[in-house]
Simulated assay, not measured.
Amino acid sequence: MIKEIVRDKEILSIRSEAATKADMQTVRDLLDTVKANEERCVGMAANMIGVHKTILVALIGDEYVAMINPVIVDKSKETYDTEEGCLSLDGVRPVTRHSIITVEYLDKKFKRRRGIFRDFEAEIIQHEIDHFSGIII
């Protein structure tokens, strides 16, 4: 189901908790909501639809991938400065991101995955993982 995007900074600042199989509806809702906003969105964290669970969706290649309980387990020393926007905020803000990250996560079937992501894909994932800690760009 397509959900409304949360724009309240107080709600967005709440730390997220680990997701379980009971949170699969949130995964489906995130995928529906990000696809409904795909002309202006490449990723979304669950708190952006009001659910404080560590679930994100990110555009990887040409499809949206759900990551449940993702953790960055390695990152390059190389960083770059960029500007990012967010559906929950107006405008863009400056950020520094790692060029390459390694992420361990569970997929939609709760199968353990490990992926290496570079450049823009890594940037999307880092942005969404920041949401889990209540960090708003």
Rank of each mutant, 00 (worst) to 15 (best):
M1T: 04
I2D: 08
D8F: 14
D8V: 11
K9W: 06
E10G: 08
I11Y: 07
K21F: 01
A22H: 03
Q25L: 08
V27P: 01
R28D: 10
L30N: 04
L31S: 10
L31R: 05
D32T: 07
K35Y: 02
A36W: 03
A36F: 07
N37P: 03
E38K: 14
M44A: 05
I49A: 05
G50D: 07
V51Y: 01
V51I: 11
K53F: 08
T54F: 01
T54P: 01
T54A: 10
I60C: 06
G61N: 05
D62W: 00
E63I: 01
Y64M: 04
V65H: 07
M67Y: 06
M67G: 10
V71G: 00
V73E: 09
V73M: 01
D74V: 02
D74M: 05
K75T: 05
K75P: 01
E78C: 07
T79Y: 11
Y80S: 09
T82D: 15
T82I: 10
T82W: 05
L87W: 09
L89T: 03
V92I: 12
R93N: 03
R93Y: 14
R93C: 02
P94H: 13
P94M: 13
P94A: 15
R97V: 11
H98G: 06
Y105F: 15
K108D: 12
F110I: 00
K111A: 11
I116L: 12
F117R: 02
R118N: 14
I125N: 03
I125K: 01
I129F: 03
I129W: 03
I137K: 13
I137Y: 12
